[in-house]
Design a binder for these strands. Structure first.
Length: 560
RNA sequence: AGGGGCGUAGCCAAGUGGUAAGGCACAGGGUUUUGAUCCCUGCAUUCCCAGGUUCGAAUCCUGGCGCCCCUGCCA
């Protein structure tokens, strides 16, 4: 149950409340989510999305979606489309505030001119290699570029020349003139414009110079009147630079940057580079492979927007490096689906059961509740007949006392149906494999209760052989076999779990499941939560993804 | 001549000088036609360490230790 005890507070919320209390933002706060459209969003981005849109919603402010697209070499429209879809799917709305840094290229250029005119930026004509050498190191100061004191007029002429395509890539860059001795490397005359003769996915060949992140981010924030610019910890060192541009330029607003720790999740990786590698090397089936920590992967797996928002709320927000226990993600989806998913029966690994004393041609429809705690979800009819299939795991020939399921001579309840007792085990003479069970049923127990008050400890699920429908079911396990693949002795890829996908091709479901639409979620009783996959359309039979298993205390007991 | 951050339970995380919230996980018990759900109960004499200030310290001071980030014309 979500017995939330007051919304958890965190330092960002405190900063905002303090600002509001001081009356600093009579128009309300303004945040933004600024992804670069060079890949797909993952659960780590969800944390930032929930924070930015969440704070805006909570304090009746606004949140923009802004594509930070200043590097033409990596960006593409297909990513902006995917990102828009993912943010919207998560439940957030940027209304009419969809922005692109590339729309600011002209204004950013003017800001650069303004800096040059003030003598606070210069065109440097050293090579990338030289610039690196002049930058110094972590412990040694940098040295001024010989071009550092170029006259303003010359800088202006050169910068216009850069813009007009008079130079090749790398011939010149524009640098902010700050302090080559600064202890903070970011302040050692950072490059703010570079020449790149590459078509931009939005501006085409209109520009051949592109602004750098540090210059773009703060000014874009200012242009959009962002009040609280929230980003991850690795940009803490960039804050002085962020402030420097804002302080030295005539901007329409004064945004402030605050940093929080990014998400790390056990048993997966959350870096764009690694995710790309998983896709390109074929370790997974694409960006939306249900094993991927991408938003699209989680969506296809069967996670709901609500569960992901709940996750982001539960993990907290601080500045300390964290590794979130994989159990938290499992918990949020179980929690939601436990309350909302209709129950159905499906058998993953069928074992034939013949009920000898049941009439050969008879069949009947039994009432089954769609949800044990929620009568409002109604009931359905489940067909029953002489031959059924049960889960192979629900039968043991030599069962320990603690095993409550079916075994020779033991009686169990077939959910919503009858008590049955196992009388005979038919095995393959060669292999010893159990082929089928011969059982008898007690007609008096129809519906699952014995008039004589007799109790059975086990209740198992089943599907009528005659009425069951074939289905393919995909079981997913963790993508990596260790909690922190980044932190091991070996390369992270050495820890990829080779058994992260198990496809079961001969599953049987109750007939009600045959028309399941892609995206529909169910609890298969006693097994877990499952989501119909789009592949079912082509396959001609339904395909279900296992979202997560049910908690299984028997597994814990039997593993001991 | 390095700079910037962070250390509270297995994992997260409240706490801001008044005697360690909460969640996940885990363990035990109860209810149960899902070994599910739900409901109880337990789970830090102590907050990275050592000194100090104080009637009183996770909170303040001093000194250590550990971990993360920073030397792209990426973001």
């Amino acid at each position: 149950m979500r017995m939330e005890s007051s919304t958890p507070t965190h330092f960002i919320r405190r900063i905002i409340e303090d600002d509001l209390a001081r009356g600093r933002y009579p128009e309300g706060i303004h945040t933004r989510f600024p992804p670069e459209p060079n890949g797909f969003l993952h659960i780590g981005h969800a944390k930032a999305i929930c924070l930015n849109f969440g704070m805006a919603a909570e304090y009746r402010g606004k949140c923009n979606l802004r594509f930070d697209d200043t590097n033409p070499e990596k960006e593409d429209m297909k990513y902006v489309d995917a990102i828009r879809e993912d943010v919207r799917w998560l439940g957030f709305d940027w209304e009419d505030r969809l922005f692109f840094a590339s729309d600011y290229f002209a204004r950013l250029f003017e800001f650069a001119i303004e800096l040059i005119e003030q003598g606070k930026a210069y065109v440097d004509s050293m090579s990338a290699e030289q610039i690196r050498q002049y930058r110094g190191t972590l412990t040694e100061p940098g040295a001024d570029s010989p071009y550092r004191n170029r006259p303003v007029a010359e800088n202006l002429e050169l910068f216009h020349g850069m813009k007009d395509g008079e130079f090749g890539d790398g011939e010149h860059v524009l640098r902010a003139k700050i302090d080559m001795q600064a202890a903070n490397l970011n302040m050692r005359d950072p490059v703010i414009y570079r020449i790149r003769r590459t078509s931009h996915y939005r501006t085409g060949d209109a520009w051949c110079i592109y602004p750098m992140y540090d210059f773009t981010q703060c000014l874009s924030d200012a242009l959009e009147h962002v009040t609280h610019s929230l980003c991850s910890l690795e940009f803490e060192d960039h804050r002085p630079l962020y402030d420097w541009f804002i302080d030295n330029l005539d901007t329409p607003a004064r945004p402030y940057q605050y940093e929080f720790a990014r998400l790390n999740l056990e048993y997966t990786v959350l870096s764009k580079r690694k995710l790309i590698e998983l896709v390109e090397d074929g370790h997974v089936d694409g960006w939306d492979d249900p094993r991927m920590p991408t938003i699209s992967g989680l969506r296809r797996r069967g996670f709901t927007p609500e569960s992901i928002r709940d996750f982001c709320e539960r993990i907290g927000l601080t500045k300390s490096d964290t590794y979130i226990d994989a159990g938290v993600l499992e918990h949020v989806i179980r929690d939601e689906l436990g309350a909302s998913a209709p129950r159905r029966m499906a058998v993953l690994r069928p074992l034939k059961v013949v009920i000898d004393n049941y009439p050969d041609d008879e069949e009947e429809l039994l009432d089954a509740a769609n949800h044990p705690q929620d009568p409002a979800m109604g009931t359905r009819k489940v067909p029953f007949s002489k031959v059924i299939y049960i889960e192979r795991d629900d039968f043991m020939e030599d069962a320990p006392k603690k095993f409550f399921r079916l075994a020779p001579g033991r009686e169990v309840r077939l959910r919503y149906a009858y008590f049955i007792t196992c009388n005979e085990v038919i095995k393959d003479e060669q292999t010893g494999e159990v082929l089928e069970l011969r059982c008898s049923y007690d007609p008096a127990t129809r519906g699952g209760n014995a008039p004589d008050g007799r109790k059975v400890k086990g209740t198992i699920h089943w599907v009528s052989a005659k009425h069951g429908r074939a289905a393919e079911i995909r079981l997913y396990d963790r993508l990596f076999s260790v909690a922190n693949p980044d932190r091991g002795e070996q390369d992270w890829k050495a820890y990829i779990n080779p058994a992260s996908l198990e496809t079961l091709d001969h599953c049987l479901t109750e007939p009600d499941l045959a028309p399941a639409q892609p995206g529909e979620r169910f609890q298969f009783e006693r097994l877990g939560y499952f989501c119909a996959d789009r592949d079912g359309r082509q396959a001609g039979k339904p395909v279900f993804n296992r979202i997560v298993t049910l908690r299984d205390s028997w597994a814990k007991i039997s593993n001991r």
